[in-house]
Amino acid sequence: MSTVVLLACTGLGLGALYFLVASGLSLVFGLMDVLNFAHGALLSVGAYAAWWAATDGHLGFWLAVAFGTVVGTAASVLLELVLIRPLYARPRDQILATVGVGLALPALLMGIWGSDARPFPQPAALSGTVDLLGATVPVNRFVLVAAALAVLLLLRLFLARTRYGLIVRAGVEDRAMVTALGIDVRRAFTLVFAIGGAAASLGGALAGLYFGSVNPSQGTGLLVFAFVVVVMGGTGSVTGAAVASVGVGLVQQFANYAAVPGLGAAGLGDLSVVVLLAVLLLVKPRGLTGRLA
């Protein structure tokens, strides 16, 4: 029983991390058809900015996380304005440009701080454990879940209650029609890039807490699972991304635990996620919410 609780909590924590990456990815892709390969790099930027603020900058943990989020958001907006915007007439080139950035940014981080993982300072309050139903669960799992829930709530409020949220929801359905109502949809593009960058870099800063360290390829590794989440959840659907994130995180953790002889135990979780994706696509080729183009 205690193992199940621990696995569930860890899976939820991992799912929360996936959600932070995938929510922005899903919105950006749903609205703009841009598969942002630099999204993982944005996570790494947030992680390294937070790590730098917490060590060299001597900021407290939460201030460092805030700093990382701000830096990641700024990087994301810059990416949209400088690289994505001039390529609106060339959708495939937009994706290729993000591929280039996705290669260059982690390499730059590696050049500055080396390829080895850097230990992420853990505040005492968050490095302990909690006893839950007989299981000893690290506190940082709950921090991630709480952060993901907060982001989910804020995103839903934004989408449901604000004019820009309305524009984003409409744009996910039919971008051209939004402009045909006299709306400059490019502002919404910049905004979703900012939101996506903020969520991803917050995820990056908290990933430092979850994994105990930061390294330059962390973001790109998480990105692949975020893609899986986006496909499963349906592009442009924040709620779909949340459900798919939890599913992927839990499946991964439980499958990892169920070791199979001959196959290293740790690989099974990642593989099972891919199998899950393949099965889902065979059954429902358009994703869970049926909105994948």
Binding site: R163, L166, I167, R169, A170, E173, V178, L181, G182, I183
Partner: peptide, 11 residues
């Protein structure tokens, strides 16, 4: 996926 009111508000 938007309500009638939202469709109008957008315009």
């Amino acid at each position: 996926h938007l309500s009638v009111a939202e469709n109008l508000r957008l315009a």
